[in-house]
């Protein structure tokens, strides 16, 4: 299939591993899904300390399950990416460990306190939900299929994140103050989750033309603002003055993009933001520490046998 045919036939779940697809398509799809899979892993890495720091057993259970779900999503997405025949899961995980693999901006920022957890678990996951819901109609069928399960589980995560936010914002004065402070820190990053305006987005046009991407960054960001600004206010959070948010006559919102720090965003995107590099290194150290297990298993005669064993 050549690129013209791909463009002509591009539609929801139009292509599968049975199709002979041009390299441009397979590479673009790999880049997009790999980014998504990496983000699941780095999101899990960021949230894992809060399994321990959760203030009740049920919250702990929910956090452990959430982190486990993210790893499961990573597994599913790497498989969907692998099926394009460009890169193996091992290569993608290796790239993520050595700092070449890219992932979502929000997961480059460290999280230090429980009051920050809903910033990820409610706002970022809520933003991710919006994007992922549209990806159920992406043209690479294995990716769309993975999104069915991911969206289903993310729905629970967002509900849990919302419940944590509600609890904090109906808690003590101190809890409300700390949560507002965390919100002010995270709010610009959350808005930047959707990336720059479409005309500054490098890969946007191609991804849309071959049906990989269904909605533009701007459309998704605006839809997110329309939904989450009222939610945030409803829980008693005050929207920071910057970036300026314009309310249109019909009650929808638009952000003044120039107020956001795009230099920082692109530094983050290139894996050059120091706290983010720290996250990458931390995960890499953890992976290197269990390298001996992978080697021991390869040596013990299991070479070539990828059949799952009970020990998986």
């Amino acid at each position: 299939m050549n690129l013209e045919t791909v463009r002509a036939r591009a539609g929801p779940r139009a292509f599968s591993p049975a199709d002979d697809l041009p390299e441009e398509y397979r590479e673009a799809a790999t880049r997009m899904i790999e980014f998504h899979a990496n983000s699941e892993i780095m999101g899990a890495y960021l949230e894992r300390p809060f399994i321990r720091q959760a203030p009740s057993i049920d919250r702990k259970l929910a956090y452990s399950a959430k982190v486990q779900d993210e790893i499961g999503h990573g597994q599913l997405l790497y498989r969907a990416a692998e099926s394009l025949g460009v890169k193996s899961r091992e290569e993608m995980l290796e790239d993520l460990a050595n700092g070449d693999g890219k992932f979502l901006n929000c997961f480059h920022y460290p999280m230090e306190s429980w009051v920050e957890t809903p910033m990820i678990a409610f706002f970022v996951d809520g933003a991710a939900m919006r994007r992922q819901a549209t990806l159920r109609r992406t043209s690479w069928e294995p990716y769309a299929h993975a999104m069915d399960k991911v969206c289903f589980e993310e729905g629970f995560h967002v509900k849990h994140g919302e419940d944590i936010l509600r609890e904090l914002m109906t808690g003590s004065r101190k809890e409300r103050r700390l949560t507002q402070e965390a919100f002010e820190t995270w709010w610009p990053r959350i808005i930047q989750f959707f990336g720059p305006t479409d005309d500054r987005s490098t890969h946007h046009d191609f991804a849309v033309s071959v049906g990989l991407k269904q909605r533009s960054n701007d459309e998704l960001r605006n839809a997110f603002l329309d939904q989450y600004i009222p939610k945030a206010r409803n829980y008693g959070l005050e929207i920071p003055d910057e970036p300026r948010i314009r309310e249109r006559e019909d009650g929808t919102y638009e952000v003044e993009e120039g107020d956001l720090d795009w230099d920082e965003f692109f530094t983050v995107a290139k894996n050059e933001y120091e706290p983010g590099r720290e996250q990458i290194r931390g995960r890499r150290t953890a992976q290197e520490a269990v390298q001996w297990v992978r080697e021991a298993i390869e040596r013990d005669g299991a070479a070539g046998s990828h059949a799952p064993r009970a020990a998986d």
């Binding site: 899990a44 890495y45 790893i71 499961g72 953890a286 269990v290 020990a311």
Partner: peptide, 19 residues
């Protein structure tokens, strides 16, 4: 056990220990 979450030798064993 939760210390192994996002630190196990493979994604599969990560899921198992979380369980």
């Amino acid at each position: 056990y939760t210390e192994w979450q996002v630190r196990a030798p493979s994604l599969e064993s990560d899921l198992a220990l979380a369980n």
